[in-house]
Protein backbone atom coordinates (compact mmCIF):
# COMPACT_ATOMS: atom_id res chain seq x y z
CA UNK A 1 0.00 0.00 0.00
CA UNK A 2 1.37 3.40 -0.93
CA UNK A 3 1.74 5.96 1.85
CA UNK A 4 0.33 9.38 1.07
CA UNK A 5 3.08 11.85 0.28
CA UNK A 6 1.91 14.04 3.14
CA UNK A 7 2.71 11.26 5.61
CA UNK A 8 5.98 10.15 4.09
CA UNK A 9 7.50 13.16 5.83
CA UNK A 10 6.02 12.01 9.12
CA UNK A 11 7.63 8.61 8.71
CA UNK A 12 10.94 10.21 7.83
CA UNK A 13 10.62 12.36 10.95
CA UNK A 14 10.14 9.24 13.07
CA UNK A 15 13.27 7.67 11.55
CA UNK A 16 15.24 10.82 12.21
CA UNK A 17 14.00 11.07 15.78
CA UNK A 18 14.93 7.50 16.52
CA UNK A 19 18.32 8.00 14.97
CA UNK A 20 19.00 10.97 17.19
CA UNK A 21 17.77 9.05 20.25
CA UNK A 22 19.94 6.03 19.43
CA UNK A 23 23.04 8.13 18.81
CA UNK A 24 22.67 10.39 21.81
CA UNK A 25 21.86 7.59 24.28
CA UNK A 26 24.72 5.46 22.91
CA UNK A 27 27.16 8.34 23.32
CA UNK A 28 25.90 8.93 26.84
CA UNK A 29 26.14 5.20 27.54
CA UNK A 30 29.75 5.02 26.28
CA UNK A 31 30.71 8.00 28.38
CA UNK A 32 28.95 6.77 31.53
CA UNK A 33 30.00 3.12 31.32
CA UNK A 34 33.57 4.00 30.39
CA UNK A 35 33.91 6.44 33.26
CA UNK A 36 32.25 4.20 35.81
CA UNK A 37 34.04 1.01 34.76
CA UNK A 38 37.43 2.68 34.50
CA UNK A 39 37.02 4.19 37.95
CA UNK A 40 35.77 0.92 39.37
CA UNK A 41 38.53 -1.14 37.73
CA UNK A 42 41.28 1.14 38.91
CA UNK A 43 39.81 1.07 42.43
CA UNK A 44 39.59 -2.74 42.32
CA UNK A 45 43.12 -3.02 40.99
CA UNK A 46 44.40 -0.79 43.73
CA UNK A 47 42.62 -2.89 46.35
CA UNK A 48 44.03 -6.09 44.87
CA UNK A 49 47.53 -4.65 44.64
CA UNK A 50 47.35 -3.50 48.25
CA UNK A 51 46.01 -6.89 49.36
CA UNK A 52 48.86 -8.70 47.61
CA UNK A 53 51.37 -6.20 48.96
CA UNK A 54 50.15 -6.76 52.51
CA UNK A 55 49.98 -10.53 52.30
CA UNK A 56 53.20 -10.99 50.35
CA UNK A 57 55.46 -9.31 52.88
CA UNK A 58 55.64 -12.35 55.12
CA UNK A 59 56.19 -14.61 52.11
CA UNK A 60 58.97 -12.45 50.69
CA UNK A 61 60.75 -12.26 54.00
CA UNK A 62 60.25 -15.82 55.24
CA UNK A 63 59.10 -18.15 52.51
CA UNK A 64 59.83 -19.54 49.08
CA UNK A 65 58.83 -17.48 46.05
CA UNK A 66 56.72 -20.34 44.68
CA UNK A 67 54.25 -19.49 47.46
CA UNK A 68 54.25 -15.90 46.26
CA UNK A 69 53.66 -17.12 42.72
CA UNK A 70 50.80 -19.27 43.93
CA UNK A 71 49.29 -16.23 45.62
CA UNK A 72 49.39 -14.00 42.55
CA UNK A 73 48.14 -16.84 40.33
CA UNK A 74 44.96 -16.89 42.40
CA UNK A 75 44.41 -13.17 41.90
CA UNK A 76 45.25 -13.53 38.21
CA UNK A 77 42.10 -15.66 37.88
CA UNK A 78 39.92 -12.61 38.66
CA UNK A 79 38.13 -11.15 35.69
CA UNK A 80 39.87 -8.23 34.07
CA UNK A 81 43.31 -8.82 35.61
CA UNK A 82 45.72 -9.66 32.82
CA UNK A 83 49.00 -9.59 34.65
CA UNK A 84 50.56 -9.20 38.06
CA UNK A 85 54.21 -8.77 38.83
CA UNK A 86 56.23 -8.18 41.96
CA UNK A 87 59.68 -6.68 42.09
CA UNK A 88 61.93 -6.14 45.08
CA UNK A 89 63.26 -2.80 46.27
CA UNK A 90 66.11 -3.03 43.74
CA UNK A 91 63.75 -3.71 40.85
CA UNK A 92 64.72 -7.39 40.64
CA UNK A 93 61.91 -9.73 39.70
CA UNK A 94 60.31 -11.87 42.39
CA UNK A 95 57.25 -13.26 40.59
CA UNK A 96 55.09 -12.50 37.57
CA UNK A 97 52.36 -13.99 35.40
CA UNK A 98 53.60 -13.05 31.92
CA UNK A 99 53.51 -15.60 29.11
CA UNK A 100 55.63 -16.04 26.93
CA UNK A 101 57.86 -13.54 28.73
CA UNK A 102 58.13 -10.18 30.42
CA UNK A 103 57.33 -7.49 27.82
CA UNK A 104 60.26 -5.23 26.95
CA UNK A 105 58.13 -2.16 27.66
CA UNK A 106 57.90 -3.27 31.28
CA UNK A 107 61.45 -4.58 31.55
CA UNK A 108 62.85 -1.32 30.31
CA UNK A 109 60.08 1.08 31.33
CA UNK A 110 59.09 2.88 34.48
CA UNK A 111 58.21 0.59 37.38
CA UNK A 112 57.23 3.17 39.93
CA UNK A 113 56.27 1.52 43.24
CA UNK A 114 53.13 3.63 43.52
CA UNK A 115 50.48 5.18 41.30
CA UNK A 116 48.68 4.34 38.07
CA UNK A 117 50.04 4.18 34.54
CA UNK A 118 48.48 3.30 31.21
CA UNK A 119 50.45 0.81 29.15
CA UNK A 120 50.25 -0.32 25.55
CA UNK A 121 52.07 -3.65 25.26
CA UNK A 122 52.42 -4.96 21.71
CA UNK A 123 51.06 -8.48 21.52
CA UNK A 124 49.30 -8.13 24.85
CA UNK A 125 46.94 -5.15 24.58
CA UNK A 126 46.25 -1.95 26.47
CA UNK A 127 46.28 -1.89 30.23
CA UNK A 128 45.76 0.26 33.26
CA UNK A 129 48.56 -0.68 35.67
CA UNK A 130 48.20 0.06 39.34
CA UNK A 131 51.15 -0.26 41.71
CA UNK A 132 51.26 -0.65 45.45
CA UNK A 133 54.41 -0.54 47.61
CA UNK A 134 55.31 -3.39 49.94
CA UNK A 135 56.23 -2.16 53.40
CA UNK A 136 56.26 1.41 52.18
CA UNK A 137 58.41 0.42 49.23
CA UNK A 138 61.41 -0.87 51.17
CA UNK A 139 60.50 -4.49 50.34
CA UNK A 140 59.43 -3.87 46.73
CA UNK A 141 56.15 -3.29 44.97
CA UNK A 142 53.18 -5.11 43.48
CA UNK A 143 51.88 -4.16 40.03
CA UNK A 144 48.47 -5.19 38.73
CA UNK A 145 47.52 -4.76 35.08
CA UNK A 146 43.83 -4.46 34.21
CA UNK A 147 42.81 -5.12 30.64
CA UNK A 148 41.35 -2.04 28.98
CA UNK A 149 40.05 -4.33 26.28
CA UNK A 150 37.66 -5.76 28.83
CA UNK A 151 36.30 -2.28 29.56
CA UNK A 152 35.81 -1.76 25.81
CA UNK A 153 34.09 -5.13 25.63
CA UNK A 154 31.75 -4.19 28.48
CA UNK A 155 30.95 -0.91 26.75
CA UNK A 156 30.26 -2.74 23.51
CA UNK A 157 27.99 -5.14 25.34
CA UNK A 158 26.11 -2.31 27.07
CA UNK A 159 25.70 -0.41 23.79
CA UNK A 160 24.72 -3.56 21.99
CA UNK A 161 21.99 -4.25 24.54
CA UNK A 162 20.78 -0.66 24.29
CA UNK A 163 20.70 -0.70 20.50
CA UNK A 164 18.90 -4.00 20.62
CA UNK A 165 16.21 -2.46 22.85
CA UNK A 166 15.95 0.69 20.74
CA UNK A 167 15.68 -1.41 17.59
CA UNK A 168 12.78 -3.37 19.02
CA UNK A 169 11.02 -0.14 20.08
CA UNK A 170 11.79 1.33 16.66
CA UNK A 171 10.30 -1.61 14.78
CA UNK A 172 7.18 -1.59 16.96
CA UNK A 173 6.89 2.19 16.48
CA UNK A 174 7.27 1.93 12.70
CA UNK A 175 4.60 -0.75 12.48
CA UNK A 176 2.32 1.31 14.74
CA UNK A 177 3.06 4.54 12.89
CA UNK A 178 2.45 2.84 9.53
CA UNK A 179 -0.90 1.59 10.74
CA UNK A 180 -1.93 4.97 12.17
CA UNK A 181 -0.66 6.91 9.16
CA UNK A 182 -2.55 4.57 6.91
CA UNK A 183 -5.66 5.01 9.00
CA UNK A 184 -5.48 8.75 8.37
CA UNK A 185 -4.20 8.57 4.80
CA UNK A 186 -6.88 6.24 3.44
CA UNK A 187 -9.93 8.57 3.91
CA UNK A 188 -7.92 11.54 2.64
CA UNK A 189 -7.02 9.56 -0.48
CA UNK A 190 -10.72 8.72 -0.85
CA UNK A 191 -11.58 12.37 -0.36
CA UNK A 192 -9.18 13.29 -3.14
CA UNK A 193 -10.80 10.70 -5.40
CA UNK A 194 -14.25 11.97 -4.49
CA UNK A 195 -13.43 15.59 -5.29
CA UNK A 196 -11.88 14.52 -8.60
CA UNK A 197 -15.08 12.58 -9.33
CA UNK A 198 -17.19 15.69 -8.57
CA UNK A 199 -14.96 17.80 -10.78
CA UNK A 200 -14.99 15.32 -13.67
CA UNK A 201 -17.83 12.81 -13.28
CA UNK A 202 -16.92 11.02 -16.51
CA UNK A 203 -13.29 10.43 -15.61
CA UNK A 204 -12.29 6.87 -14.56
CA UNK A 205 -12.12 6.35 -10.80
CA UNK A 206 -11.58 3.54 -8.31
CA UNK A 207 -14.07 5.08 -5.90
CA UNK A 208 -17.31 3.10 -5.79
CA UNK A 209 -20.72 4.49 -4.92
CA UNK A 210 -20.54 2.74 -1.52
CA UNK A 211 -17.14 4.32 -0.84
CA UNK A 212 -18.59 7.74 -1.64
CA UNK A 213 -21.62 7.12 0.57
CA UNK A 214 -19.48 6.01 3.51
CA UNK A 215 -17.23 9.02 2.98
CA UNK A 216 -20.18 11.44 3.15
CA UNK A 217 -21.51 9.70 6.24
CA UNK A 218 -18.30 10.16 8.22
CA UNK A 219 -18.71 12.52 11.15
CA UNK A 220 -15.07 13.71 11.18
CA UNK A 221 -13.28 16.47 9.30
CA UNK A 222 -12.87 14.30 6.20
CA UNK A 223 -16.66 13.70 6.12
CA UNK A 224 -17.25 17.45 6.56
CA UNK A 225 -14.85 18.28 3.73
CA UNK A 226 -16.55 15.71 1.49
CA UNK A 227 -19.97 17.19 2.21
CA UNK A 228 -18.66 20.73 1.61
CA UNK A 229 -17.15 19.58 -1.68
CA UNK A 230 -20.49 17.99 -2.68
CA UNK A 231 -22.33 21.18 -1.68
CA UNK A 232 -19.98 23.37 -3.70
CA UNK A 233 -20.27 21.06 -6.65
CA UNK A 234 -24.07 21.27 -6.43
CA UNK A 235 -23.97 25.00 -6.22
CA UNK A 236 -21.65 25.11 -9.18
CA UNK A 237 -24.08 22.98 -11.18
CA UNK A 238 -27.19 25.09 -10.23
CA UNK A 239 -27.37 28.25 -12.45
CA UNK A 240 -29.63 30.28 -10.16
CA UNK A 241 -27.38 29.78 -7.27
CA UNK A 242 -24.54 31.72 -8.87
CA UNK A 243 -24.15 35.28 -7.63
Amino acid sequence: MRIARLFQKTMFGIFLLFGIIALSTSALCVYTVDRQLSTEYVANSRTIAQTIANSSLDIILNRDLSTLQSLIDQFRELQGIRYIYIVDEHGDWLAHTFVPGIPKEILEGDRSPDGTVERRLPGFGEFVEVASPILDGIAGSVHVGMDKGLIALKIQTAIGQQIYLISIIFIVSIVGAYFLVNLAAHPITQLGGYTRMLAAPDAPTTLTADDARRLLERDDEVGQLARIARHLAHRAETPDSRP
Binding site: L65, S66, L68, Q69, D73, F98, I102
Partner: peptide
Protein backbone atom coordinates in the same frame (compact mmCIF):
# COMPACT_ATOMS: atom_id res chain seq x y z
CA UNK B 1 54.16 -19.84 34.59
CA UNK B 2 53.07 -21.01 38.02
CA UNK B 3 54.37 -22.05 41.42
CA UNK B 4 56.26 -25.03 39.97
CA UNK B 5 58.06 -22.95 37.38
CA UNK B 6 58.81 -20.27 39.94
CA UNK B 7 60.27 -22.83 42.29
CA UNK B 8 62.73 -24.03 39.66
CA UNK B 9 63.40 -20.46 38.52
CA UNK B 10 64.35 -19.52 42.08
CA UNK B 11 66.63 -22.56 42.25
CA UNK B 12 68.46 -21.53 39.09
CA UNK B 13 68.68 -17.91 40.19
CA UNK B 14 70.11 -18.81 43.59
CA UNK B 15 72.58 -21.29 42.10
CA UNK B 16 73.78 -18.64 39.63
CA UNK B 17 73.89 -15.99 42.32
CA UNK B 18 76.09 -18.25 44.47
CA UNK B 19 78.59 -18.20 41.61
CA UNK B 20 78.26 -14.48 41.02
CA UNK B 21 76.19 -14.92 37.86
CA UNK B 22 72.81 -13.72 36.64
CA UNK B 23 70.20 -15.41 34.50
CA UNK B 24 70.78 -14.79 30.79
CA UNK B 25 67.10 -14.81 29.92
CA UNK B 26 63.75 -16.36 30.65
CA UNK B 27 60.59 -17.41 28.86
CA UNK B 28 57.39 -18.92 30.18
Amino acid sequence: ADAYGRSGWVGVREALSARGLRMAGEAT
